[in-house]
């Protein structure tokens, strides 16, 4: 597979996943804000903090953390490179480059989503009474996209690169949404165990579609168990450990190596995965949840860079006569 094409597929996977997570985050936070007591309704700054775009947000909007401003910023503001409108555009741009390598239906769904977001953006729907129907549509399209891929794409290198990008992004997103918890609650210890606290934990689980499965497994909402579930669980497909496992498996399927590692990317992911595999939740809290997640995001970036060096980097095809001169 061409390095350039692999690179595009990897980022296609990442951007689509990012867009879907943003849609879900906004949806959950919106619903949370409806449930909260009137004086606590606007709980949007933590969400902006978790996306890592607080600086840009305040540059554009000052401290106006009103619902409409935040939803616009995360969804339709083209000045924000991580807004859904931007990540869908970037996903489509990558898909357009590699259109010959993806199923026609996938391309058409993504292309239609791109035009849909542009159309509803022109109607200023973030100001409407219930903007969440648009988030539903966006999530739905991306789930459709994932479904088409699951049923139609041969499990070749292209598939593994896209899936790797998707799961690296998902691990990153789960860590960020956990971090929101840090921003909202941990500063105010008094609130722990209060109804408000439960609302927040509920919202957190829902924003990674973990509410039902967590409830079935553990019943009671317990912060330690929730953190453990989202970071270390072996079966839940959005837990960080699960995602890392998939990323590692993708890397091994690509290199066709079975044990240990055959390149730096595999070494880095193997290290990180085993660290989680042999950790329990107290290790995480000993270090501090925020510090732990911060370090984790750093490790993810290093893995991403190692994958780039191993598979995507293209040598310039400089003039052969210049090459031979420098060799002599």
């Amino acid at each position: 597979m061409l390095s350039r094409v692999a690179d595009c597929l990897f980022w296609l996977g990442r951007y689509v996943e990012r867009a879907e997570n943003y849609a879900r985050f906004i949806d959950v936070n919106y619903n949370l804000s409806i449930d909260l007591p009137p004086d606590l309704r606007e709980q949007w700054p933590p969400l902006i903090a978790a996306t890592g775009d607080m600086e840009l947000f305040e540059e554009l909007n000052g401290t106006d953390y009103s619902r409409n401003t935040v939803i616009f910023f995360l969804t339709f503001d083209e000045r924000n490179p991580n807004a859904i409108i931007s990540t869908v555009r970037l996903a489509r741009e990558n898909a357009r480059i590699v259109r010959e390598s993806i199923p026609r239906e996938s391309w058409e769904v993504l292309n239609e989503l791109h035009y849909y977001i542009r159309d509803v953006s022109k109607e200023r729907v973030w100001e409407s009474e219930n903007p969440m129907q648009y988030m539903m549509r966006i999530k739905g399209s991306i789930q459709q996209l994932n479904g088409i891929g699951y049923d139609n794409i041969p499990r070749n290198h292209g598939w593994y690169f896209a899936k790797m990008g998707q799961h690296l992004e998902r691990a990153d997103m789960t860590s960020r949404i956990l971090d929101v918890k840090y921003h909202i609650l941990l500063p105010s210890v008094d609130e722990i165990g209060s109804p408000l606290d439960y609302l927040h934990w509920n919202a957190l689980l829902k924003s990674v579609s973990a509410y039902n499965s967590y409830r079935q497994l553990h019943h009671a909402l317990d912060p330690l168990r929730i953190v453990s579930y989202l970071i270390l669980d072996r079966q839940f497909p959005r837990s960080i450990f699960y995602c890392l496992n998939i990323v590692e498996k993708c890397l091994h399927d690509i290199s066709e190596s079975k044990h240990g590692y055959s390149n730096q990317a595999e070494k880095a992911i193997g290290n990180l995965r085993s660290k989680l595999e042999f950790a329990d939740v107290s290790d995480i809290f000993d270090e501090g949840l925020h510090e732990y997640l911060d370090k984790f995001q750093d490790s993810l970036n290093k893995i991403s860079e190692a994958v780039y060096q191993q598979y995507f980097k293209i040598e310039p095809n400089t003039m052969p006569d210049i090459q031979s001169q420098s060799q002599s």
Partner: peptide, 12 residues
Amino acid sequence: AELVAGQDLMVK
């Protein structure tokens, strides 16, 4: 066929 751009190719 494979779709390539100039940057994907090199002559050796």
